[in-house]
Design a protein around this nucleic acid. Sequence first.
DNA 1: TGGGGTTAT
DNA 2: ATAACCC
Length: 480
Amino acid sequence: MEKLGVVPEEEGGCEEELGAFRGMEPTDADADAEAAGGSQAGRCEVVPTGSTSSRVIVHVDLDCFYAQVEMISHPELKGKPLGVQQKYFVVTCNYEARKLGVKKLMSVRDAKEKCPQLVLVNGEDLTRYRETSYKVTELMEEFSPLVERLGFDENFVDITELIEKRLQQLQSEEHSSVTVSGHVYNDQSINLHDISHIRLLVGSQIAAEIREAIYNKLGLTGCAGVASNKLLAKLVSGIFKPNQQTVLLPESCQDLIHSLNHIKEIPGIGYKTSKRLEALGISSVRDLQTFSSKILEKELGISVAQRIQKLSFGEDTSPVTPSGPPQSFSEEDSFKKCSSEDEAKQKIAELLDSLFNRVCQDGRKPHTVRLIIRRYSSEKHYSRESRQCPVPSHVIQKLGTTGNYDVMTPMVDILMKLFRNMVNVKMPFHLTLLSVCFCNLKAPNTTKKGPIDCYLTPSLSTTSCSGKRSFKMKDTRTED
DNA sequence: TGGGGTTAT
DNA sequence: ATAACCC
């Protein structure tokens, strides 16, 4: 039945369908499914591919990523305790430093106190981290196009189809010779007669191949977790920590989720939600599992309530959504104090300059620009304000064609208007952060005009900027 | 806490 | 435009 791709009504075959249409090649299973259900009678739906509703997901988490990138750039630092500094904080550090008591996001003061020999490098410019990060994602995309980024150092990949292909090459007697790569969570014993175990073991081998490729081609080490959904893959990847991998077999799922000491450790339950849950007397995973669904829905809204309660059981039907090229580019700078318009203008110009270079290399054109500020406030945790507006079309067209010089002034002017819209410059102010974001990115030269368009735009594209443009451009025109 | 990102409302 | 989430 699984091979036929017939989905019973009970479990969500829905997002399997999404995954199937997300651009995979047809397989033999598709042909079988069509043959079996082609005339589509009855209440069963025929799914084109990925027929079993059980997926295999790998989560890859690079070890102290920024520190690794720095050690590759500066090999003389290898073996020394190394921290990466942004402003007054050590945002990450290598394992040498961790052994000596340095923790992530520790203040430089505390870190130096704990570990006077600590070497610090400045990591405020993310360029090399970002570039390396995308190389990792692109490498993983060679295994399957279904790769989703999470920050700069984590990726999910759905390898369900790859596993099906490999299993089809094996005779069923050969299943008993499949072995695991890396650790098995809980040291659970493997049942070679259980097809779900076999699939996860093949998944562990693919995870090892992915980690090997990342190491051989980029020199980076990391952890991997293999499981039946993103939540579990992510949780299990952290079990054995530097440079190791772990597979979760279904029988140990509840052990894994109950190994968490607090609901805040469930990815998807953040600071705010955990505080609200705590106010309801919910602090452990089991508290959340057994709490009244109705009350939870009334408290948090049906969407959040249902999602996080499923998470508490280790259930996560969210698909691995291919990230593709970024949706936005931003640059920010934080500081103790900015209290004059000229000071702000200067900082905004610096942020813009970096952004122009990035946007230019990408090749797409931002149609929206946003200015974000953070005001000084003694206690009032986190609050940013923003204003956005369209990028004028004459600026869009100049972007990436020459140096940034003639786009700089008009963009600074626009951003200063946004600035004055948020900040009353006739009154004293105190800002601690400025950020500029380009978003609403579109493929270039897609206006809604017809063939006449090329006469209207003197597209003198003697680009001084050679980006890679490896993503696919939108095929035809879109509205503005 | 830094310098980024995403999606939902 | 903001709020929540992720790293």
